[in-house]
């Protein structure tokens, strides 16, 4: 569990590194603004419980950091460095994700209450939020190395949660079927990317797909 959270932190650090390296080169080439908007929506709808329950100082501060980073990323892409954002290739129709995910969260949830539905929505949406980014890579056929590192850690942290959930079920009898199924879906969506990352990026090549 700690490992999962450490990697979660790590993906945010990589994200920040990505932003800072972009600041240096004034370029956001290859990053999907739509995926980043979806992630901002994911963290906003999931962490509304900041106002209702307190788990630990760590938990609350990480939630605030996640929300802050998500909106900072969106701001940088659409406002500050709009000129270098490649919107022409970022053409995934997000309504095809948000509408079905919204519908599903009303139908399959733990409790039919506003906060619980929004939490379920965020879990489902997170599992597919990377699709605009993967679509963009498949469209342009390549990605900056820093983008691929960022995507790798974004995928890795949910994959590590799978280990955590197995552990918690085994030792604490705790499980949350919605989170587990969504986590499995999210990890599966990343598999193709993981394969490319290991076979290409780690061997020092820039990720580029055959035309």
């Amino acid at each position: 569990r700690l490992l999962g959270q450490l990697f979660e932190m790590y993906q945010f650090i990589v994200r920040l590194l990505f932003i800072f390296s972009s600041l240096c080169f004034f370029s956001l080439t290859g990053i999907s603004g739509k995926s980043q908007i979806l992630f901002a929506l994911v963290f906003t709808t999931r962490y509304l419980d900041l106002f209702t329950i307190f788990i630990s100082l760590y938990n609350s501060s990480m939630k605030i950091i996640y929300i802050g980073c998500a909106y900072a990323t969106v701001y940088l892409i659409y406002m500050k460095f709009k000129a270098t954002y490649d919107g022409n290739h970022d053409t995934f129709r997000v309504e095809f994700l948000v509408v079905p995910v919204g519908g599903l969260s009303f139908l399959v949830n733990h409790d039919f209450s506003p906060l619980e539905i929004l939490w379920t929505f965020s879990i489902y949406l997170e599992s597919v939020a990377i699709l605009p980014q993967l679509f963009m890579i498949s469209k342009t056929g390549e990605a900056e190395t820093i983008t691929t590192h960022y995507l790798f850690f974004l995928g890795l942290y949910r994959a590590l949660y799978l280990v955590n959930w197995f552990w918690r079920y085994y030792f604490e009898g705790f499980f949350d079927l919605i989170a587990i199924v969504a986590g499995v879906v999210q990890t599966i969506l990343y598999c193709d990317f993981f394969y490319l990352y290991v076979t290409k990026v780690l061997k020092g090549k820039k990720l580029s797909l055959p035309a």
């Binding site: 569990r1 938990n59 939630k63 733990h110 705790f174 499980f175 949350d176």
Partner: peptide
């Protein structure tokens, strides 16, 4: 489902 699992994960 009758019980809502605790939300202690991020």
């Amino acid at each position: 489902e009758d019980t809502v699992p605790e939300k202690d994960e991020l």
